[in-house]
């Protein structure tokens, strides 16, 4: 069962990176629809968890897809998985609503990431896909308390003090759980690049 789930996941991941490239290079509507079908309902969850009201969350989902369409030509599958790229756009949109100055700092992050990762001379386009699948599996395998803080931090936009309050844990415990989870996932990511 786990094997077939992994294969299915891997198939999906590969298609998202390729679909995003097709949107960028050929303005392909079918590829765009596939991205929409998968990511739109999940982006709605993302915005709702971040504290947006129903209507605002749906408006943000639409804005996200307009941006994906417009910026897809900038997407480089060797630098990041499609999901990472879409997450970055969504995170920036969420910030843009609240703090314009902060949004300005993040605005060019995709460009900076492009510049900064040149020391990685990866030519295998599939590596991000594989990595993304492995990453999803590694997150699923984290001990529950670590998976919980990682989800709160990255998906629900909770600060580390918010997490400590919500889980009634000392801040130090939250930070050490985050650090443990991140170290484990980062090692896996580094390992998959070899």
């Amino acid at each position: 069962m786990a094997g077939s789930a992994a294969r299915e996941l891997s198939f999906l991941t590969i298609s998202f990176d390729e679909r995003l490239v097709e949107v960028g290079s050929n303005k392909c509507r079918d590829a765009f629809r596939e991205l929409f079908d998968h990511f739109a309902p999940r982006l709605k969850s993302f915005y709702l968890k971040g504290g947006s009201e129903e209507a605002a969350a749906e408006e943000l989902v639409q804005e996200t897809f307009v941006l994906i369409w417009r910026k897809a030509a900038l997407y480089d599958p060797q630098k990041a998985a499609a999901s990472t790229w879409i997450y970055t756009i969504a995170r920036n949109l969420r910030i843009d609503r609240l703090r314009k100055e902060k949004a300005m700092i993040y605005k060019e992050e995709e460009f900076f990431a492009t510049k900064l990762t040149t020391h990685e001379t990866q030519t295998d386009v599939t590596y991000q896909n594989q990595m993304n699948t492995q990453l999803a599996q590694a997150i699923a395998k984290l001990p529950a308390p670590q998976a919980q803080v990682i989800t709160l931090a990255f998906f629900e936009e909770a600060t580390h003090s918010d997490i400590a309050k919500r889980l009634a844990l000392p801040l130090g415990t939250v930070k050490s759980r985050l650090r443990l989870a991140f170290t484990r996932l980062a090692e896996m990511l580094e390992g998959s690049k070899q």
Partner: peptide
């Protein structure tokens, strides 16, 4: 910068595998 990109990959993986919320007919 690599660590930060790795961290965003975690966000991306969580987004890709998140539970979906049904969209209204507006979207």
């Amino acid at each position: 910068a690599t660590h930060a990109l790795n961290a965003r990959s975690i966000g991306g993986a969580l987004l890709e595998n998140a539970l979906p919320t049904t969209l209204s007919e507006n979207v």
